[in-house]
Write a protein that binds this DNA or RNA. Structure first.
Lengths: 239, 239
DNA sequence: GAGTATTTTTGACTCTAAGTCGAGACTATC
DNA sequence: GATAGTCTCGACTTAGAGTCAAAAATACTC
C-alpha cells in the first residue's frame, strides 16, 4: 500500500478474447476473469494481471499473465492503453498498462476453470473491480475496429480453417451477417489467406477448401503492430 | 537512481508536432526537443517530459509538459504508447508513457526558443537520448496513418482556414501531392468542415472560402479517442 | 480600363472495391 | 437416384475516389 505522494505502482493487465462454442450453433466471444482475494474489491471479478516484475518487458508480463491464467499461448498480443486516472484505485495510485490478446477457440475449450478463474461472455459482464468494465469496453471497441481494417481474425482459429469458419468469426464479433460470396472475393484478393489444397470432408454438403494464414509480411497491410514489428507482437502460426 | 529490483520509475513524455513555415514556400513538420542537463545522456536532445506527479492524470502530465516546453496549449492530444523495455534506460528501470500532440503552426512560430529547447525537422533528427528516435518514428507513423482515416489535420491550423491550407497540411505530412478537386469533394462530403461564409481577400487570385472545423460529434467518424471521449482528448476550437 | 497571371471552384468521366443476388457444383444421406 | 445443404462462381449494381479540364474571380500590369 503506497501513500498518495510516493511513486505510482505499475501493473500490467490483459484482456483475453476467445471464441467458444456454446449450446447453440454459433460461438460466442468470451474473456477470462479472476476473482480478487484481497482488498480493494475483494471477491469481485477483475482482469488477470499483476505488478510489473523488475526486469520484465511489458509484453512479456502480459504473456506470462495470460499463460498463468489460461495455460495458453497468445496467437495475437497488442498493447491496448495505459490507464492512469489518479482515482481509479482507492487508497493507492496504480497505473495499469493493459494488453489485449486473442487465443484460439479450440485451445481455450480445454482450459482449467479453477475456483478463481471463470470465462464470461464479453457483452454480458458483471460489475468488475476498478475501472475494468471501461477497459473491457475499450478493448472490445478496438477488437471490432481492428477486425475490419486488418487481418487478425485467424487469431481465433487453428492453423487451417475454412472460409465459412473465418466468416463466422467476423459475423460473431461484428454482430452482423456477411455475404459469403463477397467475403470470399475480398479475402482471396487480399492475399492474407492461401488455400492449402486440402478439403474438409465429413460434412454433409460440398467439402470446403481449407485455408491457412499467409505469413508473408507484405500481405498483412499497414496496420499497427506497435513501435516495431517485433516477432513477439506478430501472430504465432504454430502453438 | 533506482536499483534494478525496485519498482520501475514512471515517466510521461510527449511528441509535439507543428507545421512551421521555412525559407521556401512550403511549411515543414517540426518537433521541439529539450537538451538533457544530467546523466544519463547528458547534453543530448530528448523528448520533453518528466516523472509522473503523484496525483496527476497521465494526459494532464503530458499537457503540462507541453505547456512548460512551448508555452502553448495542445489542439490535439492522444496517448501514443507505453515504452517499457528493461534496457531502454541505463542504470534504472524507466517505463515511459508517451503522448503525441498537435499545436497550431502560427502559434508555434512565436515560441520561446531558449537555450535548452529547440525545434527540429521531424524527418531530420539528431541522435536522441534513450529510445526516443524510435518513439518519434512511431509517432510519425501514427500521425501519417491517422491523418488519412480521421480528421485531425485542422489541429495544425487556426480556427478558420482555406481548403488550400488544409490540403497543404495533408501534402506536407503525407509527402505527396493531392488533387485539389477531389480533396474538396471528399472534405465537403465528410461534413468535418463547414464554410464560414467569409472569404480570404488580399490574395492575388480568386478569393478562397474560409472554413472552420465542425465540432458536431457525428461528423468526426469512428476513430480512436481513447477509452472514453473525454473533452480533454478532443480538439479545442479556441485557444 | 483591358488583358494577364494565378488559384479557386465546378463538373464530367473513369476506375476500383465492395454490396447484391442468383445459379451451378459437390458430397452425404435417405 | 433424388434430396438437402453448403460451397463456389459470376454478372450486375453501387459508392467512393482518382483524373482532368473548363469556368470563375481577384490582383496586378500596362
Amino acid at each position: 500500500m503506497t501513500s498518495p505522494d510516493e511513486q505510482p505502482t505499475l501493473a500490467v493487465s490483459t484482456v483475453i478474447f476467445t471464441l467458444q462454442p456454446n449450446d447453440s450453433a454459433t460461438p460466442e466471444l468470451r474473456i477470462p476473469l479472476v476473482k480478487r482475494i484481497r482488498n480493494p474489491f475483494a471477491n469481485q471479478w477483475a482482469l488477470p494481471g499483476g505488478p510489473l516484475a523488475a526486469s520484465e518487458d511489458l509484453a512479456d508480463s502480459a504473456s506470462r499473465t495470460l499463460r498463468e491464467t489460461t495455460g495458453l499461448e497468445p496467437r495475437y498480443l497488442e498493447q491496448l492503453y495505459a490507464f492512469g486516472d489518479p482515482a481509479r484505485s482507492p487508497g493507492e495510485r496504480v497505473v495499469s498498462i493493459v494488453y489485449w490478446a486473442l487465443v484460439a477457440g479450440d485451445e481455450a475449450a480445454q482450459v482449467f476453470d479453477s475456483e478463481n478463474v471463470a470465462w464470461f461472455r464479453a457483452d454480458d459482464l458483471p460489475q468488475l473491480a476498478f475501472d475494468h468494465n471501461l477497459i473491457v469496453d475499450y478493448a472490445l471497441w478496438r477488437l471490432r475496429t481492428k477486425l475490419e481494417y486488418s487481418r487478425i481474425a485467424h487469431g481465433f482459429l487453428g492453423d487451417t480453417f475454412t472460409l465459412a469458419a473465418l466468416r463466422e468469426v467476423y459475423e460473431v464479433i461484428l454482430q452482423r451477417p456477411i455475404d459469403a460470396g463477397n467475403f470470399r472475393r475480398t479475402m482471396e484478393a487480399s492475399g492474407v489467406i492461401v488455400p492449402t489444397g486440402e478439403r474438409l470432408t465429413g460434412t454433409r454438403h460440398r467439402p470446403p477448401q481449407l485455408y491457412r494464414y499467409n505469413a508473408e509480411p507484405e500481405s498483412q497491410g499497414e496496420f499497427d503492430l506497435g513501435p516495431r514489428s517485433r516477432p513477439m507482437l506478430t501472430v504465432k502460426e504454430t502453438a
